[in-house]
Amino acid sequence: MADNEDLKELQKLHFESHNKYVYFLLAATGAALGYALQKLDGLPITFWVAPGLFAVFCWLASFYAGCMRITWTHRAMHANFDSLQLQRGIHLRQPDSASETQRVIELRKGHTLENLGRSSFYIKLQFWLLTAGLLAFVVWRILEMLRVKGAP
């Protein structure tokens, strides 16, 4: 039984760590957006600011992906919770027959796995959009320095 408790504790730590990572990425994205918008404020929309605008677009999409990751994780947890309630016979809409209960449990387990898959997709997307925005922003700032240096 102690092994089961160790697994539960490890799973809990993994989940908490993953959540902290998502919220860290959201915070980094918010800070990057604020900084980029401050740098873009008042600049005319020209070819020269395109990488900066692309960075902002990437960070907005990253923020959206982070929110979707949280949404799909919550949906997975809810589906898993439903499945556990059904297994214990305490669900509010508990089916009358054991075979129907088993069918609904399997259905909810499938929903849990689908939702976790979507959650996994969105956390990867969140990271890569944040990274793409960072690269675009750095390219923009370098282009700006080269352009200003070359101007008379």
Rank of each mutant, 00 (worst) to 15 (best):
V104A: 02
R93N: 10
S83E: 06
V22W: 08
F63K: 14
V138E: 04
A28F: 13
F121H: 07
R75I: 13
A36R: 02
L7T: 15
K8M: 10
G133N: 08
F24C: 10
V22R: 13
A55K: 01
K12N: 13
I142Y: 04
I70A: 07
T71E: 14
Q11Y: 06
L43K: 04
Y122H: 12
N80F: 01
H78P: 02
A28W: 14
L25E: 13
Q102L: 07
T131N: 15
I105S: 00
A28E: 14
A28Y: 13
N19P: 02
Y23I: 03
S99T: 09
V49N: 03
L84T: 08
G150W: 00
M145L: 10
D96H: 09
E114M: 14
A65L: 06
R69A: 04
V148S: 02
H74M: 13
L143P: 03
G42K: 01
A32L: 13
K149D: 10
L25D: 12
T71A: 11
Q38L: 05
A2W: 14
E106N: 04
D82R: 08
A50K: 11
K149F: 10
Q87G: 05
F54S: 14
P95D: 00
A2Q: 12
E5M: 13
L107D: 03
D41P: 02
L92W: 09
A98K: 09
E5T: 13
A136W: 09
G52M: 05
Q87F: 00
K20N: 15
P152Q: 06
L146C: 07
H18E: 10
F127L: 14
H91E: 02
W72Y: 05
N19K: 10
H78T: 15
L130G: 06
G34C: 02
W140Y: 05
W72M: 00
T46D: 03
P44N: 01
D41S: 04
E106C: 06
R108E: 07
C67T: 15
G30Q: 06
A36P: 02
K8V: 04
L86R: 03
L26T: 08
L135V: 13
Y21G: 12
L125A: 11
W140H: 11
W128F: 14
L53Q: 05
S17C: 10
T71M: 13
R88P: 05
E5P: 05
Q94A: 04
Q38P: 01
W128M: 15
A98N: 04
S62C: 08
A136F: 14
D82Q: 07
A76E: 01
W140S: 09
N80D: 07
A79F: 02
A132Q: 04
L130T: 06
H14P: 07
L7A: 15
L134I: 06
A36W: 02
Q94K: 02
L134F: 13
T101M: 03
F63C: 12
L130A: 10
A27Y: 12
G133D: 07
